[in-house]
Design a protein around this nucleic acid. Structure first.
Length: 177
DNA sequence: CCACGGATTGGCT
DNA sequence: GCCAATCCGTGGA
């Protein structure tokens, strides 16, 4: 969830990938702490935002204790509330169901929809700007599928991508073999 | 539906 | 210089 300009932007996380720092050649933290990745080494519960491909931001939830650079990349979100604002942020119009599914179905798309950029790097997820709440459906049993991760060249063997089965809002990116 | 390539910055060798 | 935890438009089946 995000509080943004007098709106609530609400989404359900439907796809993530784990990046395990020093033991994971695909992780930004693989070669230790730098200015870019330093938030990855903070306490769990912070947001690590990075800029990539010269034009996109992607976001991660930092998961370990201080000094250990583990994080979970947020790859797709099912938009629940504030869709009009998200669509404006994404520069698209909501007409068909298809447009709704294209709103947040990628790590850079969800950042654009939720207006997550450089300024949000290091945000405390226990604060009141961006946070993660428990889903209000205690009896639901989501079936979680796993696969290899998307768009990487190293660490391909690990099945560290997790997503909800049959959820139409998962990303279109293809896992590496 | 699928494959391909261009866009465009910054981090690191 | 090389290339990336991506996205989107184009062109063909």
């Amino acid at each position: 969830m995000r509080r943004y300009k007098n709106h609530f932007l609400i989404g359900k996380i439907v796809e993530v990938e784990a990046y395990l720092g020093e033991q994971d050649p695909a992780s930004h933290a693989y070669n230790g702490k730098t200015k870019r990745n330093e938030v990855m080494f903070w306490n769990g519960g912070h947001l690590y935002v990075y800029f990539t491909y010269g034009m996109h931001f992607c976001s991660n939830v930092v998961t370990e204790q201080e000094g250990i650079g583990h994080a979970v990349l947020l790859r797709a979100v099912e938009p629940i509330g504030g869709l009009e604002v998200m669509a404006r942020n994404r520069h698209i119009t909501l007409r068909a169901e298809r447009d709704k599914q294209n709103l947040c179905n990628g790590p850079a798309k969800l950042c654009e929809a939720f207006a997550i950029e450089r300024e949000e790097n290091g945000v405390d997820l226990c604060g009141d700007d961006i946070w993660i709440a428990e889903e209000q459906r205690p009896n639901s049993r989501p079936s979680i599928e796993k696969s290899t991760r998307v768009g990487i060249t190293r660490g391909k063997q690990h099945q560290w991508r997790f997503f909800l089965r049959n959820n139409p809002y998962v990303s279109t990116g293809k896992p590496v073999q």
